[in-house]
Design a protein around this nucleic acid. Structure first.
Length: 341
DNA sequence: AAAGGTCGCAACCGCACTGGT
DNA sequence: TACCAGTGCGGTTGCGACCTT
């Protein structure tokens, strides 16, 4: 309020800076500093507004700026800090010497955000997306692709990549089941307006996986809100996951490994065990150990493998490729991955 | 080889907020 | 309290590089 825009004067140059302009700005700041950005352009002999000079200096010309690609370490730092700080780019930049907030923002918007979305994580919450219905058609296509590939075997490398993608699809699928079980108990419409019948229609398109059946047809039918959910609990009653997770009260299970009511993966693990083997819900089973929210060992599924399977070979990052200390919350232990597969 | 499309990045715009006077 | 300069941020644009057809 009560403040005039800094760039409302006519005749001031905009757009890309020339090397001559850069030199003028650098020379002036090195000699006199930048006490007043508004006065600086005239004093430095530049036909620019003060704000433009400030941005050019802080985002490009500052001598301590580091240019070039972000390292894997920087990428992990950004992901970690963003999960805590959100879009506080300057705060994040303060932990990355030589990087500007604008540079980090651009890197986030062009790379990291896409990567998280591609992997099924909400880029704002860093948790598995709850609007899984939105990506369900994508997963259906993925599973149909597997069905196709089963009939047309690939070489060993391609098959390994395909298997990783299928594992991820299964995880997404389990999350979907949990989400649907919850939403079914409260509302027949999901957040994005998808009806349960539409979801069932999509589910019916998923080919049966002979070697690793996740659900048989009757279990699929049980998702129908008109009958009951996969837990065999009347849908008119809310789900109480604590009833399904006796290990919650097991003092031998480390606190950060105990799935809470909000821990989707804990619920997914429970469900996966129930679906794969009705008697396999023994809480003392070592495979129940879950990753803490900041696991030291990342999962084996890489974005590269996923993108390869999805036909997008543009992403080559090694995110989650073996040394990352960052991972969105609630990812499954390898042993659970084995249970699922 | 050329045209069109896509992507990544630097830079800009507008607004909100903070702190000093 | 009002004004002003500086700063932070989300959103957007322009353009060059690269890719695809």
């Amino acid at each position: 309020m009560g403040r005039s825009p800094c760039c409302d004067e006519n005749g001031l140059k905009k757009g890309p800076w020339t090397p001559e302009e850069d030199q003028k700005l650098v020379d002036y700041i090195q000699k006199h500093g930048h006490r007043s950005w508004r006065a600086l352009p005239k004093l430095a002999g530049l036909n620019r507004c003060g704000k433009s000079c400030r941005l050019r200096w802080t985002n490009y010309l500052r001598p301590d700026i580091k240019r070039g690609k972000f390292s894997e370490e920087e990428e992990k730092t950004i992901l970690n800090l963003h999960s805590v700080l959100g879009n506080k780019w300057s705060a994040i930049a303060s932990h990355l010497p030589g990087r500007t907030d604008n540079e980090i923002k651009n890197f986030w918007n062009t790379h990291l955000k896409k990567k998280l979305i591609q992997m099924g994580f909400d880029p704002m919450t860093h948790q598995p997306r709850t609007d899984i219905f939105a990506s369900l058609p994508h997963l259906v296509a993925l599973l149909n692709l597997k069905d196709l590939l089963d009939r047309h075997p690939l070489d060993e490398h391609a098959m390994r990549l395909q298997a990783e993608a299928i594992q991820l699809a299964k995880l997404q699928y389990l999350r979907y089941l949990l989400q649907s079980a919850t939403s079914i108990t409260s509302n027949s419409y999901t957040q994005n307006g998808t009806t349960d019948m539409e979801i069932l229609s999509l589910l019916s398109q998923i080919p049966v996986m002979k070697e690793t059946p996740l659900l048989n047809s009757s279990q699929l039918e049980n998702i129908n809100p008109a009958s009951s959910n996969p837990f065999g609990i009347a849908t008119s009653q809310p789900l109480h996951y604590s009833n399904l997770l006796p290990q919650l009260s097991d003092p031998q299970v480390p606190f950060n490994c105990q799935p809470s009511l909000n821990n989707e993966m804990g619920q997914a693990a429970t469900l996966s065990a129930m679906l794969n083997d009705g008697d396999n819900s023994n809480p003392s089973d070592s495979s129940w150990v879950l990753r803490s929210p900041t696991p030291s060992i990342p999962p084996t599924v890489t974005d590269t493998s996923i993108s390869n399977n999805l036909g997008d070979a543009s992403s080559t990052s090694s995110y989650g490729g073996g040394t990352s200390s960052y991972w969105p919350e609630f990812f499954l232990d390898d042993s659970i991955m084995h249970q699922i597969s």
